[in-house]
Nucleic acid binder design. Structure first.
Length: 560
RNA sequence: GCGCCCGUAGCUCAAUUGGAUAGAGCAACGGCCUUCUAAGCCGUAGGUUACAGGUUCAAUUCCUGUCGGGCGCACCA
């Protein structure tokens, strides 16, 4: 049982009762807001109901509050007291026993604690990273990767079915350019003097790929039709790079259910089909020799070209087909995670999916702001073509996977993020991820000490009753228990807002409470009852820390 | 010029979707290890929430404008 729902029910009943009895006269009931007050002394839960009823009832808020309270006063055993405060808040103080009860819930549910079943479970596809396979992943992709993965777990935790997808732009001009760049490097390695045309990919990795081909196949591509050689180099480079990307993402702890090929959409004529579909809905028309999609009626600034006057399809056209494909695979909801540099594209793709007849709520495009890469406070200029960039791999190797992920997840996604490489390197001691992990390691350490002193932890955890827990009476103990029991609500609101960063803040706070508690109270003492109760408490903390870290995709080490 | 995001402590960021006294970490200063991990704890200091109006019982949050920063504005991908 969770406190929040119970109190909400009480309030709803109180309003109904007062109206039936005539002490309140209105008929509208505003949405009852129940929150956890920030400051001590303001109760475990507080509602602004009386404030929002003031207008409807035409009575001062405090008066309404006291009317409601008299109806609430039918002594609910788990409420310690109810107070009116400030302009008309109603503050609820719950009994300690009520809170202690939640320790039993945590131990019963274990890794399921915090999970819930959505009222209407959805089948969701999250598409993220999707960086062009023209080079290794750079740091900025790490943000999208960490975000998408955490969001996927978060939505799963609240009962949705989630798949992860990487969209591979494996066709188009940039692929040709990639093959051409590699081919030129190959010729260079065989002693030719070549000029790299402007715009070609110049990173070291291009030479690496060319070298590999030279080693394997010698000079056999010097002769013969260049065009077919370039096709071959394109394919080879693409495969090599995709393998790198997959390896890096795997090392980063991210698994995609599908790697979706843009080329396949074209090969299966889905682009044409999607455009025909739009035409059948009269959302596609011809003007100046080109085919235009009517995106304007759906909030776009102007209509957009899908087929150019020379007959070639735009990238927008394949994106329309791709989104249609995603919907047709049976997903209730699509989530795209894009960098801020693509935000200008949001309206048009949302408009296009609406033009096809999909409700706008079914597509969410989550924009994360860009990562400013700094070194010692100075911006690092990055360009994939010029080959000056910092890869995700380098950062993972330098800073570690856990710290990198936590760092990316600490910030709300719509603020730009400074990633200072020098700082990140030295952040091994400062990064808050260690603060949280350390709390977990500490708990494990206490438990192992308890074990060596012959405390039977298993047995203790199997027979928890309220009586044992009564020895947990210190204010900080109750405060920790209260915080633990708020975990499920936090997960739900984080999922609803699609803001995984809330978990990082929650975990830091909880870790802080533990560190502080550790300093002032011993868990393992001569007092058998107290020791048992505290072992129950700290194992509950451990469960919640683990559950939270798991959603973030960060490890919970037993030793540090 | 137009559009999107942001502007909160010296720095990096929160703030329960409009609530009570705006909070953390880092940096600074002063304390705490013969007892379960000092990657820790306790304390001090730090604010006209960019600015000006508006909406209401209540605004960091919503609206308008100004200023500042980032990004984007193709029959490119």
């Amino acid at each position: 049982m969770l406190g929040k729902e119970s109190v909400l029910h009480l309030l709803q009943d109180a309003v109904d009762e007062c109206r039936a009895a005539g002490s309140l006269s209105g008929s509208d009931t505003p949405q009852i807001v129940l929150e956890v007050p920030k400051h001590e002394g303001q109760g475990d839960f507080a509602t602004t109901l009386a404030l929002s009823l003031a207008k409807i009832e035409k009575k001062p808020p405090r008066e309404i509050a006291s009317i409601l309270i008299s109806a609430l006063e039918k002594k609910t055993p788990w409420i310690e007291k109810i107070e009116i405060a400030g302009p008309g808040y109603i503050n609820f103080f719950l009994t300690h026993d009520f809170w202690r009860q939640s320790l039993i819930t945590i131990h019963t549910q274990q890794s399921d604690f915090g999970k819930s079943a959505a009222p209407t479970p959805q089948k969701i596809l999250i598409e993220f990273v999707s960086a062009n396979p023209t080079g290794p992943l750079h740091v900025a992709s790490g943000r999208a990767a960490a975000l998408g993965d955490a969001l996927a777990r978060l939505l799963q935790a609240v009962g949705h079915e989630v798949d992860r997808e990487y969209y591979l732009n494996d066709i188009g001009a940039q692929m040709q350019l990639l093959g051409h760049s590699t081919y030129l490097r190959y010729r260079e390695l065989l002693g030719e003097k070549v000029d790299l045309p402007e715009g070609s990919y110049q990173g070291e990795y291009i030479i690496e790929i060319a070298e590999a081909l030279k080693q394997r196949d010698g000079n056999q591509y010097l002769e013969g039709p260049e065009a077919s050689h370039i096709d071959f180099f394109t394919q080879y480079s693409f495969e090599t790079i995709v393998a790198w990307i997959q390896k890096d993402l795997q090392a980063f702890g991210i698994h995609f259910n599908t790697w979706f090929s843009e080329k396949e959409i074209h090969d299966k004529n889905e682009v044409t089909a999607a455009l025909d579909f739009l035409k059948s809905k009269e959302m596609l028309y011809e003007k100046d020799g080109a085919q235009w999609v009517s995106t304007m009626p759906f909030g776009d600034d102007k209509d957009r070209v899908a087929v150019r006057s020379d007959g070639r399809k735009t990238y927008f056209a394949s994106d329309i087909a791709y989104h249609r494909n995603k919907f047709e695979r049976g997903y209730d909801r699509l989530i795209d995670i894009w960098g801020a540099d693509h935000h200008g594209y949001v309206n048009r793709i949302k408009a296009a999916t609406q033009a096809m007849g999909y409700e706008s709520e079914r597509l969410t495009i989550l924009i994360h702001q860009l990562v400013n890469l700094l070194r010692d406070g100075k911006p690092v200029k990055m360009s994939k073509r010029a080959g000056t960039f910092v890869t995700l791999r380098e950062v993972m190797d330098e800073v570690g996977v856990d710290a990198t992920r936590f760092f990316f997840l600490m910030r709300r996604s719509d603020t730009s993020l400074d990633f200072d490489l020098a700082l990140a390197k030295k952040a091994t001691n400062e990064n808050p991820v260690f603060y949280v992990q350390y709390a977990h390691a500490r708990l494990c350490s206490i438990l192992s000490v308890a074990k060596t002193q012959n405390w039977d932890i298993e047995a203790t955890l199997q027979n928890i009753d309220l009586k044992i827990l009564e020895t947990l009476s210190l204010p900080e103990e109750i405060a920790i228990i209260r915080e633990l029991s708020h975990y499920p609500a936090m997960i739900q609101s984080a999922a609803e807002a699609m803001e995984p960063h809330r978990i990082t803040f929650y975990l830091q706070n909880l870790a802080g409470m533990l560190h502080s508690y550790y300093f002032s109270c011993r868990v393992v003492t001569d007092d058998a009852e107290l020791t048992k109760a505290r072992l129950i408490l700290i194992t509950a903390i451990r469960i919640v820390l683990r559950n939270g870290l798991r959603i973030l995709g960060i490890s919970a080490p037993e030793k540090m």
